[in-house]
Write a protein that binds this DNA or RNA. Structure first.
Lengths: 202, 202
DNA sequence: GCTCCCACAGACAGGTCTGTCTAGTGTTGG
DNA sequence: CCAACACTAGACAGACCTGTCTGTGGGAGC
């Protein structure tokens, strides 16, 4: 929409000096929205944490809803990069599928983890909220990743296998957050994924 | 806690005339909190929908947080009753376990369903919130139900089986809410539960 | 009858919410 | 030098938030 045609020199100059208002806002939103929740954290706390004027937020994003969308899109992009980068270390499609649980599970093991940001942000979303569209895009991508790997692994019904793996993926995200034994839950989820793979590739 | 020792005459008299303020508040909270979310719905909307004075709410529950706890405890009690009543129709422990998915899945198939109220209400809960304790009690009960049935079914490791079943239970609750194919997700979850049972009872 | 108690209606306090607006500052490119 | 631009600080509007308080009315028990 705006600023797309700027000279590269200017952008790098600004960036080396200090992160732009947009970047600081996104960093603050990412931290606060994830830690405390998109409904609990108000605009004032975000701009205070970012060290940014309120007008800059509304010039850049237009509304809180759009800031939430940008926050979730950032989470989506980071997860996509983390997984695509991490999965190259695994050789076979089967190992890559288990690697997804390994990589994402490690995140949820962090004591700072508050579970899946898409599940949380959409838990109380109103029907037309931007968070719903962002969460949908994320989930379509995850489902596609499972399905692609299931196909490469030679599953007879890759879509069905992906659906089952996605259920386990959601289940451990919730259970690791809510109950007191994230490591045990993750191990149980991994075992289930392996069992599903064995059954689907037999 | 209170009112348990009241004369039956008085209670029935009140009940036939009109539900008490407490009952109307709980009914309104149940509807609004579940449909729109405990953070989105304010006290004013609850009391307006219940047709109750604000002072009655604070005399009865003391705070919004305690009203949320009462709302979740009501959900817990209703689910417990629904399952214990519904499961008598199933003969074997194995069928009862699958019956849990049948009974609860049918609820999530309702277009009005917004998924698991405990997952949603705790998604943005602050550390000491009453919703966390209520959700914990509910989840301990669910886990215990799975474990008891797994033990009766003769599973070698009933706790491990219960943990896996609980992951599937959470997974379908989330996936049925967020993606567009609740019936397919439920069928996939049922199939996974059956597979887990076959593996654990072999 | 009279008193107690539950529930009513609603004003009020003090704060927070999102979003708008004005005015000023500092840097950069021409 | 000057115009453009991104940004800052902060007042402001109008709504909503939780929670408290005052005063009223009606039914039940003594």
């Amino acid at each position: 929409m705006d600023g797309g045609r700027k000279a590269v020199d200017e952008m790098t100059a600004v960036r080396t000096a200090r992160p732009s208002a947009r970047e600081r806002l996104l960093a603050a939103a990412d931290e606060l929205f994830y830690r405390e929740g998109v409904h609990v954290v108000g605009i004032d706390r975000v701009i205070e944490h970012a060290g940014v004027a309120k007008a800059s937020l509304y010039n850049t994003f237009g509304s809180k809803d759009e800031l939430i969308r940008a926050y979730l899109e950032g989470r989506h992009a980071a997860t996509e990069k983390r997984l695509t980068d991490g999965l190259v270390a695994y050789a076979t499609p089967r190992e890559k599928i288990l690697g997804i649980f390994e990589i994402q599970g490690a995140r949820f093991l962090n004591p700072e983890s508050r579970g899946c940001p898409f599940i949380s942000a959409t838990a109380e979303a109103m029907p037309g909220a931007a968070s719903l569209a962002a969460a949908d895009a994320y989930r379509v991508w995850v489902r596609g990743l499972f399905a692609d790997l299931a196909r490469e692994a030679g599953a007879t019904d890759p879509e069905a296998l992906a659906q089952q793996l996605h259920i386990v993926y959601d289940g451990i995200a919730v259970k690791m957050r809510m109950d007191g034994d994230p490591a045990g839950d993750l191990a149980a989820g991994r075992a289930m994924a392996a069992m599903l793979l064995d059954a689907a590739l037999a």
